[in-house]
Simulated scan of single mutants.
Amino acid sequence: MNIEAQIQKVGDSLGIILPTEALQQLNGKEGTTVYLTDSGEGSVTINQSSSDLEQIVKLTEEGLDQYRNALNELAK
């Protein structure tokens, strides 16, 4: 699905007003937090949930803590 939206001035910032179709896809309403992820080649993905991202960050931090000495040695 491709939905067109324009970047608009909102106060002193810029914003994108999401059409109803996009909000329905996100199951979003006013106040819903969304996450923008770099999808490469000048595109981004908008998601309502960041559970995957939160899990990845948690596992990465645990791995860095567990293997800090080995990683430091490899970095030399």
Results as ranks from 00 to 15, higher is better:
residue 1 M to A: 14
residue 2 N to W: 10
residue 2 N to C: 05
residue 4 E to D: 12
residue 4 E to H: 11
residue 5 A to M: 10
residue 6 Q to T: 14
residue 6 Q to F: 10
residue 6 Q to R: 15
residue 7 I to K: 11
residue 9 K to P: 02
residue 9 K to M: 04
residue 9 K to D: 09
residue 10 V to Y: 11
residue 10 V to G: 05
residue 11 G to W: 01
residue 11 G to H: 07
residue 11 G to P: 01
residue 13 S to R: 13
residue 13 S to G: 11
residue 13 S to D: 14
residue 14 L to C: 03
residue 14 L to W: 10
residue 14 L to E: 07
residue 15 G to L: 03
residue 17 I to Q: 13
residue 18 L to I: 02
residue 18 L to R: 02
residue 19 P to R: 10
residue 19 P to S: 10
residue 19 P to K: 12
residue 20 T to L: 12
residue 20 T to M: 08
residue 20 T to K: 15
residue 20 T to V: 13
residue 20 T to G: 07
residue 21 E to D: 09
residue 22 A to V: 05
residue 22 A to W: 00
residue 22 A to H: 02
residue 25 Q to R: 08
residue 28 G to Y: 00
residue 28 G to Q: 06
residue 28 G to P: 02
residue 30 E to L: 14
residue 30 E to F: 03
residue 31 G to K: 08
residue 32 T to I: 01
residue 32 T to M: 04
residue 32 T to W: 03
residue 32 T to A: 11
residue 33 T to D: 13
residue 33 T to H: 11
residue 34 V to L: 09
residue 35 Y to I: 11
residue 35 Y to C: 04
residue 36 L to M: 15
residue 37 T to G: 06
residue 37 T to L: 07
residue 39 S to H: 13
residue 39 S to C: 13
residue 39 S to L: 08
residue 40 G to L: 03
residue 42 G to Q: 05
residue 43 S to D: 09
residue 44 V to H: 01
residue 44 V to N: 01
residue 44 V to F: 11
residue 45 T to H: 09
residue 46 I to W: 03
residue 47 N to I: 06
residue 47 N to R: 14
residue 48 Q to R: 15
residue 49 S to Y: 12
residue 49 S to R: 12
residue 49 S to N: 11
residue 50 S to R: 05
residue 51 S to C: 07
residue 51 S to D: 14
residue 52 D to F: 15
residue 52 D to K: 14
residue 52 D to R: 13
residue 53 L to C: 08
residue 53 L to K: 12
residue 53 L to P: 05
residue 53 L to G: 12
residue 53 L to S: 13
residue 54 E to V: 13
residue 56 I to P: 02
residue 57 V to A: 14
residue 57 V to K: 13
residue 57 V to F: 03
residue 58 K to I: 04
residue 58 K to V: 10
residue 58 K to G: 02
residue 58 K to R: 14
residue 59 L to F: 07
residue 59 L to I: 09
residue 60 T to P: 00
residue 61 E to P: 03
residue 61 E to K: 14
residue 62 E to L: 09
residue 62 E to P: 01
residue 62 E to F: 04
residue 63 G to C: 02
residue 63 G to Q: 00
residue 64 L to H: 06
residue 64 L to M: 02
residue 65 D to C: 09
residue 65 D to P: 00
residue 65 D to I: 11
residue 66 Q to F: 07
residue 68 R to S: 05
residue 69 N to C: 04
residue 69 N to R: 03
residue 69 N to T: 08
residue 69 N to H: 06
residue 70 A to M: 09
residue 70 A to S: 06
residue 71 L to G: 01
residue 71 L to F: 03
residue 72 N to L: 15
residue 73 E to F: 05
residue 73 E to I: 03
residue 73 E to V: 07
residue 73 E to Y: 05
residue 73 E to D: 15
residue 74 L to S: 00
residue 74 L to I: 00
residue 74 L to M: 12
residue 75 A to Y: 00
residue 75 A to P: 04
residue 75 A to T: 08
residue 76 K to W: 06
